[in-house]
Nucleic acid binder design. Structure first.
Length: 461
RNA sequence: GGCCCUGUGGCGGAGUGGUGACGCAGCGGAUUGCAAAUCCGUGUACACCAGUUCGAUUCUGGUCGGGGCUUCCA
């Protein structure tokens, strides 16, 4: 099935053709690990995980190489270390581990490669040296900078011109730079910085600047030209623009063939961001919502559009996902059919149209329920197979219906099962008072009984 | 200021030059001991004003509103 992706650089959907179908490469900018990531930070995680899943199904599980870096050296990490007294390594390892756990909680597969910046300082220095040799870099007394005006195509990705930027009021003031648009490749060590943030270089002690790590690590692990480079829309300029400048001036080849950027999560119509302080942490959400509900909510909007993150969105996601699990429960025993419906995959292949994919999943749930109502075994088996085939593409439906509705079997589920049995007995004796008493009792525990011609089942709501 | 995106029914959210995706909520019916679950049915939605067209929510121009980037940021 043809995959089409919206390429930010081309500003249109393009048919996706990898350089080598046997080795499809994707690089996504990962976290700076100095504190907990918020739910907005997990939008690219979930979005590109969904793309990863689609590509794996299309090109083969081992044919897709997905790298997502860990930025473990940066101003904020140094500041966190100085403030807390913890070592940089302790801080970065702690928060990288939490990030990994959070990502797993929303069913994101581990990337193929997770490169850490501090493990690649040698590669970064080699790149900076190459840039200097070619005349693209120069040193000042604060660091080594990239000479932006030497790249006539600078701004192509984000669709802006250097002179446009000059009109803005937010250009950094740095007298040492030749041009305000020049950006740091290497930052010299400042007096109060910890030793663990210091590396030697031919220009002097310092540390790599942010942009260079992605260029160096993408080239090392995925090659000079990668197929897909992704990240949040805020990274389009300047981060990705700078990556392009560094990489293409070093290698003389196109850095990435498709650029993809996800939109922001909003809170009350304004973007969620650490600097605004209007953030919700994923681990807080996990206290109240299943990871799959969070993922469903995230996928309910198209990845390029802003998505307003509200409790109501989560509640709707929970109800809708619950209906799908309920439908799956009703056809669970009808095994044997082969999946044939391509709706979800078709939707995802059209620039990751997850809202349509989820609509299709709902359609399949309707078919399952309808088949179950009719007692049509063939249709039930077909619906079951189609729903279960869609799950892995979306990173949803990883549980059995019983696990979803009732949780894992234990003493409590046995107790509830017994009460449901008792109620059935009461109903058989037309003892409605007793039957309703049991139902009310369970209702008070947020347990819902669902009757059918063949018996009763229950779920936690 | 510059550049870019966006405005769909009570809510979320796709899509299209010509029969109202899908989900949630609501309403009616079936089913049920009564419910719930489920199924079926049910909505004169496309910010506003012009223009192009046989026909525009969809294309063009303008107006108004919302948002983003403009070197901290997913």
């Amino acid at each position: 099935m043809t995959i089409r992706l919206f390429d930010s650089a081309a500003r249109e959907k393009r048919v996706f053709k990898p350089q080598d179908p046997a080795r499809v490469t994707m690089y996504v900018c990962g976290p700076t690990v100095y504190n907990r990531a918020h739910i907005g930070n997990f939008r690219p995680v979930i979005v590109f995980d969904t793309l990863f899943r689609l590509l794996r199904q299309t090109y083969g599980e081992t044919a897709v190489v997905y790298a997502r870096n860990v930025t473990d050296i940066d101003d904020k990490i140094i500041a966190a270390s100085v403030e807390s007294g913890e070592t940089i390594a302790a801080i970065t390892q702690k928060y990288a581990a939490i990030y990994g756990e959070d990502a797993a909680a929303v069913n994101a597969l581990a990337p193929t490669i997770t490169p850490w910046a501090t493990k690649h300082v040698g590669e970064m220095l080699a790149m900076i040296e190459a840039l200097e040799r070619k005349g693209y870099a120069y040193a000042t007394d604060t660091g080594v900078y990239f000479d932006v005006p030497q790249v006539p195509t600078y701004g192509r990705l984000s669709g802006r011109k250097l002179e446009d930027n000059l009109a803005g009021a937010r250009i950094a003031v740095d007298q040492g730079k030749r041009n305000p648009a020049d950006f740091a490749l290497w930052k010299f060590t400042k007096p109060d910085e910890p030793d663990s943030a210091v590396w030697d270089s031919k220009w002097g002690k310092g540390r790599p600047s942010w942009h260079i790590e992605c260029s160096a690590m993408a080239a090392k692990h995925l090659g000079k030209t990668i197929d897909i480079h992704g990240g949040g829309i805020d990274l389009q300029f300047p981060h990705h623009e700078n990556e392009i400048a560094q990489s293409e001036c070093t290698h003389g080849e196109e850095m990435a063939r498709y650029w993809m950027h996800n939109g922001f999560l909003d809170m009350g119509g304004e973007k969620m961001s650490k600097s605004l302080g209007n953030v919700v942490l994923l681990n807080e959400l996990l206290n109240d919502w299943d990871g799959e509900v969070i993922r469903f909510a995230m996928l309910s909007g198209h990845y390029r559009a802003p998505l307003d993150w509200t409790d109501d969105l989560l509640e709707q996601a929970k109800v809708t996902l619950g209906r799908i699990y309920g439908a799956l429960r009703r056809v669970w025993a009808a095994e044997g059919a082969r999946a044939s419906d391509k709706g979800v995959r078709r939707a995802l292949s059209d620039d990751l149209n997850t809202p349509v994919a989820l609509a299709d999943l709902s359609r399949l749930a309707g078919e399952a329920n309808s088949a179950a109502d009719r007692g049509d075994q063939d249709a039930m088996a077909q619906a079951r197979a189609d729903i279960l085939a869609a799950g892995p593409l979306l990173g949803l439906l990883t549980k059995t219906p019983a696990q979803w509705e009732q949780g894992d079997s234990n003493d409590d589920t046995a107790r509830i099962d017994q009460l449901v049995e008792d109620r059935l007995t009461a109903r058989a004796e037309k003892n409605w008072a007793e039957a309703d008493r049991i139902r009310d009792k369970l209702q008070a525990e947020r347990i819902e009984i669902m009757d059918s011609a063949t018996g009763s089942t229950w779920r936690r709501i």
